[in-house]
Design a protein around this nucleic acid. Structure first.
Lengths: 249, 249
DNA sequence: CGACGAGTGTGAACCAGGTCACATCGGCCT
DNA sequence: AGGCCGATGTGACCTGGTTCACACTCGTCG
């Protein structure tokens, strides 16, 4: 539906944008092995955009015309049903790319994407990108690896959702998020609201809150406003591993 | 764990095996565009095996050393939890390939695979296969498409499981299966037990049975032993589309 | 043929998690 | 300093789906 898309009107110094794009690409695992010429060409394709929290980037069913990379902020990949319930499939942070599936196979988008916080992204058009990939076989192999990673993440989700109960799923989600937001060890703070977590694990905010409070009582986590601090990863890992486990303690 | 693997001891006329492998590969969307030389080389890599129903092919966590293709029968891709519950992620039929993820990214298998019926498969070792792919850029692009397809299938599953209730999920599963087992129109017979379906949608056999009976009463489906015949796809499609829907009828 | 095992059909009791309906808290904006 | 609004905390009730415990019906194999 509404593709807020990438506004073209930014007259910001093209030079600085291009160079920051370049340095982002250089750091990205997918692109960093490309030679400088190729990278610079890619940068010329990149269109830059700044989005306000909540802005739609694309919607499920849209034709997938662009590949995106996040420069700052986070982007939410989600789906929603007719009756308003929605589920978050993934959060994409700075330095990561998203929207690759529809670009690579030229079919419709499989989910919605929107700005989860204010953020800067850039977009590369499929018409520029696909020929570029075809000319760079090692890049194609990198994309194969990326897709495999995504597939692992997604089938992991299926596994969680089908086989685990609330504590197990919540623990898995927390572990996954601490891995992702990997910070200094000892005080891992995950900047996510309980509402968001509930949508990631597919359960209600209320249930999540109750479980989190239990764990807070055991000093496994500390709850802050808009964030969760994992104090003791060990029991959470145990819960996440077990197919579904008791809460005896 | 137990990798029944590909027994080497078959002394069956290598010639006929090789030629049937070749003709299978030629029909497969992934391989059919390769030139004859490449295909023949691939066939030389292929190791042939015959498996009895229930035989394990690989297990979650194993190193993924082979890519497989099914020549006849069906292979079940599933996961199971510590407490015995298990979920079927996919059924792979004749002409399809499986086990590509671990081969392509050289990590552990993400799920178990076993023979769902007696079947014939062949295996290609990663050490033969990966260099081969790297030398065939168009093949790499084909694999990108395959992985995208898998990703679509899998995230579809996540969506179903999180957003839909029993009728919705069951309807989706039936629709997906009729698409897959695509037969002559009008009397689509899906050769799956209710137990299997229940494991695909992540609910109990009992619940599935009750729902199916309701639909049988409305002549949407007919139940047979070890099979379900879809008589009227329309209402099922409607249920599958809706995020989750009432059963008023 | 007869019996055994896999698949199917069904009801009663139970329970994890959802729903609803609030109270509270913190941060920010004016 | 006051007023929102988004986020958190919590209880009472409801319910879809599980669990358990069966009877039944096919096929098929000795």
């Amino acid at each position: 539906m509404v593709v807020t898309g990438v506004p073209q009107d930014k007259k910001v110094a093209a030079q600085s944008v291009a160079s920051s794009t370049l340095s982002l690409l250089r750091k990205h695992p997918i692109f960093r092995d490309l030679d400088s010429d190729a990278l610079e060409q890619l940068c010329r394709y990149a269109k830059h955009a700044t989005l306000k929290r909540g802005a739609a980037i694309f919607a499920k069913g849209d034709p997938g015309n662009s590949l995106y990379a996040v420069m700052s902020g986070t982007v939410k990949i989600s789906i929603s049903s007719a009756d308003g319930r929605s589920a978050i499939l993934n959060l994409i942070g700075a330095g990561e790319i998203f929207g690759e599936i529809a670009v690579l196979d030229s079919h419709a988008r499989t989910a919605d994407a929107s700005a989860n916080t204010n953020c800067e992204i850039f977009a590369i058009d499929r018409r520029d990108f696909l020929p570029f990939v075809r000319g760079q076989p090692t890049l194609a192999m990198k994309f194969i690896e990326l897709l495999c990673m995504r597939l692992r993440w997604t089938s992991d989700q299926v596994e969680q959702v089908i086989l685990q109960d609330l504590p197990g799923r919540l623990a898995s989600a927390l572990v996954r998020l601490t891995d992702k937001y990997k910070l200094a060890p000892g005080g891992r703070t995950i900047a996510v609201t309980q509402q968001e977590i509930s949508e990631m694990v597919g359960m209600t905010r209320e249930s999540i809150n109750k479980q989190l409070r239990v764990w807070a009582g055991r000093n496994w986590v500390r709850l802050e406003h808009g964030a969760i601090v994992v104090l003791d990863e060990v029991p959470l890992l145990a819960l996440a591993e077990a197919g579904s486990e008791d809460e005896a303690g």
